[in-house]
């Protein structure tokens, strides 16, 4: 896909999204007009902001047709092959990380994520890989769970129970 095509698709997407926002406000039980003696209704602010979004997207479309923006004339690749690999694999790894958060819990999924990223993408040695795979969850546990008293997701009951052992060790120490 060229930058030129991407620019067009993005402008269409933002235009449709803006219309969607306007519709969302319009169909809900919100006043998008002026209330006499009180000023704007509850829906006026988001509705007209979305309207300006639509106008701005439309302006980008017009500028694309007339070839004003540099992007609308560029025939370079929007995302080249090497980038596609790195960016897509990073985004997918993050997606899987978030899904696993709720299944096997934050700490086990962080370990898997670090292992995958360092070993498969980074091709680092075993020492670097394992020190970060083990170090990251310990650091996160100490910083967020102990110091900031935040309860990170522990996943399904089986994995949650496994973590009770870790908590036991922690509370026996401090």
């Amino acid at each position: 896909m060229t930058v030129r095509t991407a620019e067009l698709l993005m402008a269409i997407a933002t235009f449709l999204a803006s219309l969607g926002l306007m519709l969302n406000v319009y169909v809900s039980d919100l006043n998008i007009g002026w209330v006499e003696g009180r000023g704007p209704g509850a829906g006026m602010w988001p509705f007209w902001l979305a309207f300006v979004m639509a106008l701005a997207s439309f302006a980008t479309l017009v500028r694309w047709i007339r070839g004003i923006t540099p992007e609308s004339r560029s025939t370079e690749d929007y995302v080249d092959r090497d980038t596609l690999f790195l960016v897509v694999i990073s985004a997918v790894a993050l997606l899987v990380l978030l899904i696993l958060f709720e299944i096997i819990g934050a700490y086990f999924s962080l370990m898997l994520f670090m292992f995958f990223y360092l070993r498969t993408i980074g091709r680092h040695g075993w020492v670097a890989t394992w020190s970060l795979v083990i170090g990251t969850p310990i650091f996160v546990y100490l910083l967020f769970e102990v110091a900031l008293t935040k309860y990170l997701p522990k996943g399904l009951p089986f994995f949650e129970n496994l973590f009770l052992y870790v908590d036991d060790i922690r509370y026996s120490l401090f």
Binding site: S90, A93, L94, L97, F113, M114, Y117, L118, I121, G122, R123, H124, A128, L132, T136
Partner: peptide, 8 residues
């Protein structure tokens, strides 16, 4: 590739 996963 070491810094990136840590930031993520």
């Amino acid at each position: 590739t070491i810094l990136t996963p840590i930031i993520f």
